[in-house]
């Protein structure tokens, strides 16, 4: 069935590269796709340990503080050591030392319970400055990225903010594609990256660990009704497992978009600060080109046959 293009507005598509298991090659793949996509808005949503900028070498155009949530802070002169706060805190963030409440900032969830119930109003609740985010220019296109300060929380909120900024940037640049490097795992920042995306590209590898993790991340995609496809990296490390992954992926309704060889060029490219597709036309680069073509055709099909929910 073919539907008419009713609107002249550009249909923006958000492609998210994820993996479940870390270290399967998300960032190398994202860099190559950013090179091939030419003109996409590029976004690094792994705000906890971002690496994409090491390849894209972006020139920062604007830098912004990320202030999110609050932290409890005890004014010792006002604290009478009653212990009410420590008793109510469900995050083990408050202990009493020398009859004064002491907040452990790493455990503090910023829930305000201690602030609210302190009988002597001894606890302040200052804003939490927990990172920085940037709008930059890279040789592959405009880029939105961030760095959460080490040990901080609120990564989900920072991811949501970056996605919003990427959309604004895509609108002003008339870009049709937002390409995002996602975080590992299936928790808070991944959920924040995934919900409402147009397509998830799951980069996996033929190891028992990665298969286990792929199954969970694929379930997460289906939970949020995001269509997903699978790219098997380091495929020749274990050929039978690579085939097994593709078979299982098919059973879970995921499209396989190809295999990448176990190839030193990935490390060489990172060391050189280049995308794999920039430094040669070998088998890895051509497999990445084919994979990107498949993604483009999935996206084109998606325009006429909407699949799942795509929040705009």
């Amino acid at each position: 069935m073919v539907s008419l293009e009713t609107s002249k507005a550009i249909a923006m598509q958000e492609i998210l590269i994820i993996s479940g298991k870390g270290g399967t090659g998300k960032t190398s793949v994202t860099a190559a796709f950013a090179h091939l996509a030419a003109g996409a808005v590029i976004c690094d949503l792994d705000v906890d340990a971002p690496d994409l900028h090491l390849i894209l070498d972006p020139a920062i155009k604007s830098s912004h503080d990320f202030i999110s949530g609050n932290l409890a802070r005890v004014a010792p002169d006002k604290c009478d050591g009653c212990g009410k706060c420590a008793e109510l805190c469900r995050f083990q963030a408050i202990t009493l030392k020398d009859a004064k409440a002491v907040v452990d900032e790493f455990n503090c969830e910023g829930c305000k319970v201690c602030v609210t119930f302190c009988p002597t109003r001894a606890i302040d609740f200052p804003d939490n400055f927990c990172g920085r985010w940037y709008i930059s220019d890279s040789r592959f296109g405009p880029m939105v990225h961030a760095q959460l300060f080490p040990g901080e929380e609120n990564s989900g909120r920072l991811v949501a903010l970056l996605r919003q900024e990427a959309k604004k940037l895509a609108e002003s640049n008339q870009a049709e594609i937002i390409l995002s490097d996602g975080p590992p795992g299936i928790g808070c920042p991944v959920i924040s990256s995934l919900s409402g995306s147009s397509l998830a590209v799951i980069v996996t590898e033929p190891t028992q660990s990665a298969i286990h993790d792929l199954e969970r991340v694929a379930r997460l995609c289906s939970h949020f009704s995001v269509p997903a496809c699978v790219l098997v990296n380091k495929a020749d490390l274990n050929q039978p497992l690579a085939e097994d992954i593709e078979r299982r992926a098919g059973q879970q309704g995921l499209v396989s978009i190809g295999r990448l060889p176990f190839d030193q060029i990935f490390v060489q490219a990172v060391v050189a600060g280049k995308a794999v597709t920039e430094i040669g036309d070998d088998r890895s680069a051509s497999a990445l080109r084919k994979a990107w073509q498949k993604i483009e055709s999935i996206l084109n099909n998606g325009k006429t046959q909407p699949k799942g929910e795509t929040k705009k």
Partner: peptide, 13 residues
């Protein structure tokens, strides 16, 4: 867990 934010901190403390 990987990373340096709250899950990793909760694990290594």
């Amino acid at each position: 867990p990987p990373g340096v934010s709250c899950p990793a901190a909760a694990a290594v403390r």
